[in-house]
Design a binder for these strands. Structure first.
Lengths: 301, 301
DNA sequence: CATTATTATTGTCTTGGACAAATATTCGAT
DNA sequence: ATCGAATATTTGTCCAAGACAATAATAATG
């Protein structure tokens, strides 16, 4: 596996891989006859573990110096016995079990029934959010593979899109353009927000994921949007978020609000002219807020 | 705009941008006080034009030496008057017009009606494929912005996912795992294939886009798949495809077939053990073929 | 104990060179 | 003149070692 393939597989940049080798002595790939790096499978596997733990908050220096055993220990920390808050939620456990068994039809049916029972809004607020969190957690603990996360994500995406499609297409206020920035490919947060906003009568225009910043501006202007809503997943690199957001804020006209949501939103420092939605409840109240402000324009700001 | 942002926005690698600067003198970015490259907006815009034309088949040496006027000429080649094959297809023109007007509800309704009229299979084979091609063409000519392509793609994706979801979940043979490789984010080709396969009674397990190769293998084994189907869009860098495919072929067990489809599939040299689907008709006949082969195992191979 | 200053960590950018795969072109033979 | 093989050019990716600034962790201070 050459360095480009490892970058694709682990999400770690080429520069990062080379500088780790220089500084920490790991990974230490073989070389082919032209002197280029060839990473053995076990080193790639270890890099994926390290990547997971970094997303959990561990620092590289610690992880790269750690022994095989230490990594395994960090991956599966001994769960404190007193904390068993999840047992009560049988749907959650059931879903995780279905994912692990790769039972796609069962997964689909279970989720569908849950949505029917709770209604779309309740499903989004009370089921999908904790479910996403649980799946992410399981992944960071190494209990789920990436492809299992993909299976889950695909089913949930299908379900949400079908539900959104079945809604009467709203034509009300406000008009919201939804998307993610380049390199952010997670769409579930976006779809959840779209479902909530659409249920509440707002006009939603989703661009899907990874729209260049210049195109976000063009789209907002073309749709005469009141709001641009951007979603960041928990996995998005924290150091890139702040500059990206302020650049986007500069690009957008002042009268268009910029809402930032998703699991990554709580790691962002507050910025003027940017509304952070830390949680889906915030999204609903922000929408109510916006309407109130429009109803009573004397309120100021 | 620094070099990382340009890489995101244009899809051109950092190394490529630097080597172009050295060899061709373009792009020639400003430098900040630490000596790092800062690309002005007009150079980024020109790079996006160049990227478009490269996807059309022009070579970098030509494009980077070209003047502003030449680029404009290549972008909008004088259409030969005799060739007007598209006029007959009013749905196509109507759809393009709706995209340009950013009329999302109209777009959605038009596509939905077309699908109802033709049925899912006819819609996929006779409408979506030429529509995708037309949208891609319009984009390469600079007539559509990226965000307009996103709008179209989102609507089509919703429509297809709803249609697939409404099918009775098939449990027949063969069992097919569908996905794309990392860095390939276009999903429409995958959904079209899934629709056709599912209509024909195959069991489909879609992983969505960008699954690491190791996870593709794990998924195929977990689902006891007969076939792994990978989609490449026209925009995928040609030089990466062949090594990626042969690496995947090595990873997969021999009894699992590897099918490669999508608009980019016709630029791939034939490889043993890999079945290239150049067009959606090929997909259907490959499926028929597979079944025939299983029915008459004496056929050999 | 809270807050500020210092030190360590870490990702990304820099240069200029090298090489091989892909593509174009030339040459020779039928 | 046309096809195929041999040669030349183009082009993306990789390498090395160094530098810097932003972040996080630690020490020093009120």
């Amino acid at each position: 596996m050459n360095i480009g393939a490892v970058e694709r597989d682990t999400g770690l940049g080429k520069d990062t891989l080379r500088v780790w080798e220089r500084r920490y002595g790991f990974p230490l790939p073989d070389r082919d006859d032209k002197g280029e790096r060839l990473y053995p499978a076990d080193q790639v596997a270890r890099l994926r573990v390290i990547r997971r733990l970094m997303d959990q908050g561990y620092r590289p220096g610690r992880l790269l110096a750690a022994s095989e055993a230490e990594l395994a220990e960090l991956s599966a920390p001994p769960v404190p016995v007193n904390a068993t808050p999840l047992v009560e939620n049988s749907l959650l456990l059931q879903t995780l079990a279905l994912i692990r068994q790769h039972d796609v039809p069962g997964l689909r049916q279970t989720l569908e029934q849950a949505m029917m029972r709770q209604g779309l809004q309740g499903f989004v607020l009370n089921t999908i959010a904790p479910l996403n969190h649980a799946v992410g957690e399981a992944w960071t603990r190494g209990e789920l593979e990436i492809f299992e996360e993909h299976l889950y994500s695909e089913q949930m995406q299908s379900l949400l899109r079908r539900a959104i499609g079945n809604l009467t297409q709203a034509t009300g206020q406000p008009r919201i353009v939804l998307t993610t920035v380049p390199e952010e490919q997670h769409i579930l947060g976006l779809l959840m927000a779209e479902a909530l906003f659409a249920l509440d009568g707002a006009s939603c225009f989703s661009l899907g994921t990874q729209t260049p910043l210049l195109d976000i501006r063009m789209a907002a202007q073309a749709q005469t949007a009141d709001i641009v809503a951007i979603s960041f997943s928990a996995a998005f690199p924290a150091r890139q978020m702040a500059p990206l957001i302020s650049q986007l804020r500069t690009l957008l006209p002042e009268n268009i609000e910029l809402w930032i949501g998703g699991a990554g939103a709580n790691r962002i420092p507050a910025q003027p002219g940017v509304i952070l939605l830390c949680g889906l409840q915030d999204a609903l109240s922000a929408l109510a807020n916006w309407r109130q402000k429009r109803a009573q324009p004397a309120d100021g700001l």
